[in-house]
Design a protein around this nucleic acid. Structure first.
Lengths: 321, 321
DNA sequence: CACGGCTCTCGACAAAAGTCAAATCAGCGC
DNA sequence: GCGCTGATTTGACTTTTGTCGAGAGCCGTG
């Protein structure tokens, strides 16, 4: 296989084209190949992250609303995707923004924790490629043998692939049938090491789930709709990395949570940058819970959710005074 | 001036085009402007660093020779520009590479020390734009009222401008006529603070000058050719940030050095990443001195100099054994 | 209020980049 | 040795992008 020379050529072509600003035909004659090949190499270079094209996400932090949300909830940084999007699908817009923000936050040598969900998978799916060799992507929670394409391990691996990073998977079920078994598995060296390594992460990427019948936990069979309703009554406000949290952002004391294998919230809070992405307008309550629990330092949301966050903050401060 | 809406438009256009991958005509219809304007906005976006296109410099570190030089001289990283360049001017090639490497090393929030010289100015000149608001570029040595376009303050300001960073200039002459005056000026609060702030830098960018009649010090009138020759006899091996160093990379004990206002070498050594760029083949001796003095952790050189570095290292180790 | 001077915007053309089917080449089993 | 398979490369074609001069809008000035 002539992959070595090809790799070299891709690098050289990318170098001449992007760094030196030569035209494709000039590159072609320098490298003594046809221009069409140059075009192909350049596409590969972009796809593999040999060249990085990134747009500043400043536009979305400059927003006054973003500043207000930052202040109101004491977050490190907030990005707001305009709702009156210029593009067809507003939820895609949030994911594209989230992917850019994510890439901006990642540094060389980082260890990144990734949770699971439709949102995270969408982000992974549209994320552009980058070449960050010494980055590790770890899975934050156990697996779910769901028929979905956004299984936890898929999210992790896809992001690792895009970044050209190492992917560290987590081969345990998210939820077991008994508490004892869960405890036993958590004590298992392979699993224990994985869980222990989570707090060493520099950056976490996750979303928050709603506590309703549409939740992934229900769709994947981890919980029945009835159990979900029951959890709601017990004070469940959201789902983070497979665990059910209450309105204060603490793990809900319930049978289900005790059977889950996932990063405990203290480990998550130990991660410096916790990037939370919320696409759906309906996830206001879970998001508030996550913020209350200090599970989020960096936030990407749509304008609509941002507005409602501010309304809520305003109401709360009024009540307090 | 309709510059505010324009700024917004540039951001939006860049966002839709680069992040969402729309075509220019699609962007144009979304934004309700002509495609020609979109093309113009995109150019501006590239020029101002709203979008970043960077190519991985891996190709040049992958080189086995680069590894050998790293090992032989205990450097953190070495990049080697191939001498049989694909481009017209080999020295430009080194500068382009150096600029890429430099941009790769800069992080948000960094403080960067920049020295002066043709090499540094060339790098500044071809460096692409970036948007790093919270970066500070400081000048490492005093000014020289030369008729050259690569005055120390110019180098600093140009790099600051390209990075969209703050530029901190150094308004003192590089060399004074008496030692007393130099001492007095160094004690001056404005100057003292500047000099004291140098060791807080995260990254330094400089080259090394040769001790000959072609040196900038001679061309700018700081030293006469005769003085230069005399210094050589006293053991001068190179020039760093306006100061004359000996073969061990220490400040040469001479009248000239005592009259200079510049970063002292200890401050330079305190900077974490010291990127040295050498274009000319003739600068082998100064480079060896700089390396010996621990003034360089990251190195960008042409293949020819790299070869000679290795020869030298080989000879030295043979002699030692 | 008309007048330059200024920048921004547009349409049309030229240049460059992307794409695809056909051709070429290397490796491999028969 | 021969022909097959699959990947790579090429030339020709189409689409997309860059550029330029003309014209439109805006402001301060006489």
């Amino acid at each position: 296989m002539a992959i070595r020379p090809a790799e070299q050529l891709i690098h050289k072509a990318a170098w001449l084209y992007y760094a030196h600003g030569l035209r494709q035909d000039e590159v072609a004659s320098q490298l003594k190949i046809s221009r069409a090949s140059v075009a192909m190499y350049l596409r590969k270079a972009r796809e593999t992250g040999i060249v990085n094209i990134s747009t500043s996400t400043q536009l979305f932090t400059d927003d006054v609303m973003a500043r207000k949300v930052e202040d109101a909830f004491k977050l490190d940084a907030v990005w707001i995707a305009p709702e009156n999007a210029y593009v067809a699908d507003p939820s895609t817009d949030i994911a594209v923004l989230a992917a850019s923000v994510f890439l901006e936050l990642v540094k060389k040598g980082d260890r990144i924790g990734v949770a699971w969900g439709r949102t995270v998978y969408t982000i992974a799916d549209i994320m552009s490629y980058a070449d960050l060799q010494d980055v590790t992507v770890v899975q934050l929670c156990g697996n779910l043998g769901a028929p979905y394409s956004y299984r936890p391990d898929q999210c992790t691996m896809e992001i690792a692939r895009r970044l050209n990073a190492k992917g560290l998977n987590f081969y345990a079920p998210l939820v077991l049938s008994t508490e004892e078994l869960a405890q036993g598995l958590r004590a298992e060296p392979v699993i224990r090491d994985q869980l222990a390594g989570i707090s060493d992460c520099d950056l976490a990427l996750y979303s928050v789930g709603a506590v309703d019948a549409d939740s992934h936990l229900v769709k994947c069979g981890a919980l029945t709709p009835a159990e979900m309703t029951a959890l709601r009554k017990q004070g469940a406000a959201g789902v983070i990395a497979g665990q059910v949290i209450d309105a204060k952002g603490e793990v809900l004391d319930c049978d289900y949570n005790r059977r889950v294998i996932s990063a405990d919230l203290a480990s998550l809070r130990a991660i410096g940058k916790r990037l939370m992405v919320v696409q759906e307008d309906s996830k206001l309550e879970p998001l508030l819970a996550a913020i209350a629990g200090g599970l989020c330092t960096h936030l990407v949301v749509g304008a609509h959710v941002a507005e409602r966050l501010l309304e809520h903050a305003g109401a709360a401060s009024k009540k307090a005074s």
